[in-house]
Structures are given as C-alpha cells and as structure tokens.
Amino acid sequence: MTGTTGYLLRKLGGALIVLFLLSVLVYLLFYVAPGDPAKLACGPRCNAEQLHQVRGQLGLDEPLLTRYLHFLAGLVTGRDYSTGTGVLHCPAPCFGLSYQNDQPVTALLAARLPVTASLALGSMVLWLLLGVGTGLLSALRRGGTTERVLTVLTLTGTATPVFITGLLLLMLFCATLQWLPFPSYVPLTEDPEQWAWNLLLPWTTLALLESAKYARLTRSSTLETLAEDHIRTFRAYGLPERTVIGRHALRGALPPVIALNAIDLGTMFGGAMLTETLFGLPGIGQLLVHSVRTVDLPVVVGAVLGIGTAVVLANALADVLYALADRRVTLT
C-alpha cells in the first residue's frame, strides 16, 4: 500500500483547509456581526469611558484583519490580556477569555470534556450493539413478522426527539418506579459504579435515537450486499448459508456503518446539547447553551471551533476508515 501515506496526508490537508475556512467564517459571524462585543464584555452597567477602555483591552479598535491575525496567533502561541490592573495570560491554544469570569476558554472546555466523553463513548457501545443487531436481524428475516415489528420500532426511534425519550424515561424510572437516581455527573475516577449508574439514563436516551439510524443503515447495507453477484457465486458453490452471510455478506455490509460511526462519535464529542441540558450534565454542549444565553462570545466561538475540529477530524477519519475497510475504493 504505497499510496496510503500520501492519501492520509491529503485527507489531513483537506481537513486543515476546512478548519481554516471554518475559523474565518465563525470569526466573521461572531465578531463582526451586529452587536458590540465590548458592550457585551463590559456588562449592562457600563459608562462610555469604561466601554472605551474595554474596547482597547480587547483590541477592538484595530482593523479587522489584524484582529483576526491576533486571534490566529493566539491559537498557536497564546495571548496576554491587560486588565488595567494586571496581565491575564491565556495559554495556547487561546480562544480568548470568558466575558463572564475571565477564565481561558480552553480551560473551560477542557474541564467539560470528561463529561461529554463519558456520555459519548458509553452510548456508542449501546447504540452499536442495539442498532447493528437490529439492522442485521431485520435484513436476514426480511418479509416476516420480525422485520415488520423491527421496522415499526426503528421508525418510532427515529421519530422521537431525545428530549421526549429522555423525559419519558425520567418519568418512568426516576419518578414513578424510582429505580434510578435523577442523573448527576460523578467522575469515573471518583466512583466508577456511581458514574455508570448515573449515566445509565442519558446513555440509553442517546442510544435509542442513534440505534434507529444504525438499524436502518445496517439493514439497507446488508440487503445491498446480499443482492450482489458474488453471494450467488458462493451459493452456487455449495457454501452453507451461515458462511455465506458470516464471511461474505457481513464483510461487505460493515464499511458504511464503521464510517458513519466515526462521524457520529465526532459529533457526540462536540456535545450532545439536548441530552446534557435535559439531564443537567455539565458537558461541552451545556456550556455552549449556557454561554449563548449569557452572550459570552469567546466561549461560544471557542466551543463552536472546538466542536468543528472534532467533527472535521472525525469526517476525515471516517473517509480513511471507509477506504481501508472497503478495499475497492481507490485511494485518491
């Protein structure tokens, strides 16, 4: 595989270009769009002199391009902000300081990452088991009652927004049956058992939604493979149906599922906003929603760019995984 390294480099290069474009877009949208960042940073009780001072601290009186370059430089080398009384250092990669509490955005995001990662990885295990299993079953039992029941279930799954599933699960398991605690995040390092116990509901909620998507994809992909000519070849050469499906049909059906999973995992790392808000989990998604409500622009920009990075890298990874899994794709 001589082309693999080049392929990977090209994919990475493409992802970097996309990230650069995204940073320009987001920067323009949030720092040039209507509304005065200085007024937001200064707060509601702010006189003209203070406003002018804040504008100077934030460098808002400089031309746009200079400001953007400062922003980019801050990402690479870090940045210092003078507050009038002292200097606040914001280490690289610096997205700026929160208007609310002057903390570096990067630190805020990093603090939230374990929560989001716990949620994402745990539910991924569930949705893969549930989704791929259901999809396979409905593809192999097609035409029967099993398939019809599964189709209705997956349709219901796709049509139910997470907050409905979540609320219903909460009502059932926390309020009525009282089997589970109302979820609150416990770090894995502190108490693994409580960690899992508390996250069980959020995991299930997310997994129910996602697994419906995976079930549909697995089913269609399996059926597509089963319709291919080489499946007929192996049947015509007397291979038992078990081997035909296990070795040949599955091998062809999985690449799209793997690729989709990489993308989804990236998106989940960006924060499952609805789930985190519903269950009060202090993850990245909840941070973003909170910052939007308080118009804390640096945090919003940092969160969007952070999430964007996760997603773009996940997409590149998905392409690579797909190409490696599906050897028919030529690496270009």
């Binding site: 996309v18 474009l21 995204l22 987001v26 949208l29 949030f30 769009a33 209507p34 509304g35 993308i263 998106t267 960006g270 924060g271 906003m273 609805l274 998604g285 973003l288 929603v289 910052s291 939007v292 118009v295 622009l297 919003v300 920009v301 969160a303 969007v304 999430i307 964007g308 997603v311 773009v312 997409n315």
Partner: peptide, 17 residues
C-alpha cells in the same frame, strides 16, 4: 463543510449574535 458541521451547534451559536 456544511454537511459536516453540527447544525444544532451553529444554530444555537448564531442566535447569540
């Protein structure tokens, strides 16, 4: 880029400005 970006995230962010 548009397909890759999580729509909800950007939508949420945009309403801020």
């Amino acid at each position: 880029v548009m397909v890759a970006l999580p729509m909800l995230v950007l939508g949420v962010a945009l309403t801020a400005v």
